[in-house]
Every structure is written in C-alpha cells, then in structure tokens.
C-alpha cells in the first residue's frame, strides 16, 4: 500500500493500538462488518449488491447499530 498524502506517516499511525476484530452481523436483512463496542455495533462496512443501499445514510460506516 502506498499513501500519497501530505500527512507524515508517523502522524497517521501515531495511536495505532491493538487491532479490533470485526464481526459480521445481519440487521434489517443486510449484512454488515461491525466493530463491537459497549454501546452497540459500529458499522465498518456494508455488504450489499444493491447500490441504492449505499445511498441510505442509515447504513453509513460509523453508524451505531444498538443491540
């Protein structure tokens, strides 16, 4: 991977902690990769073949799915 950015490499990766595992969950008939947190699942990635799902802000990365 090559980064082409004005931000120095050390700044980007300064607070790289432990890598959090992702889980695959099914919500509202859609499949998501999520990161587990105390408040719920944070969407990391939506798995869908319907491009219109990606225009729906409810499924945006970073959104919380409350368990």
């Amino acid at each position: 991977m090559i980064l082409y950015t004005i931000v120095p490499w050390e700044v980007i990766f300064q607070d790289e902690g432990e890598i959090q595992p992702t889980h695959v969950v099914n919500v509202a008939g859609k499949t998501f990769s999520v990161r587990r947190t105390e408040e719920g699942d944070v969407i990391e990635r939506l798995h869908s073949t319907d491009p219109n799902d990606f225009l729906d802000t409810r499924w945006s990365p970073g959104n919380l799915i409350v368990r």
């Binding site: 300064q14 607070d15 902690g17 990635r45 990606f54």
Partner: peptide, 24 residues
Amino acid sequence: GHMVLPPKNKTTKYEHVIPQLVAV
C-alpha cells in the same frame, strides 16, 4: 484504501463511495 487507518484519522472509505457512484 487497502489498510484501515487508526481511528483518530478522519477518513473517506472508498469501498462505500464506489457503490454510491454506481447508484448515482
């Protein structure tokens, strides 16, 4: 892109943008 950046970075995730472009 190919690597998930540490959470302090604000990022645009290309795997989400590309299907959006398909929908548009």
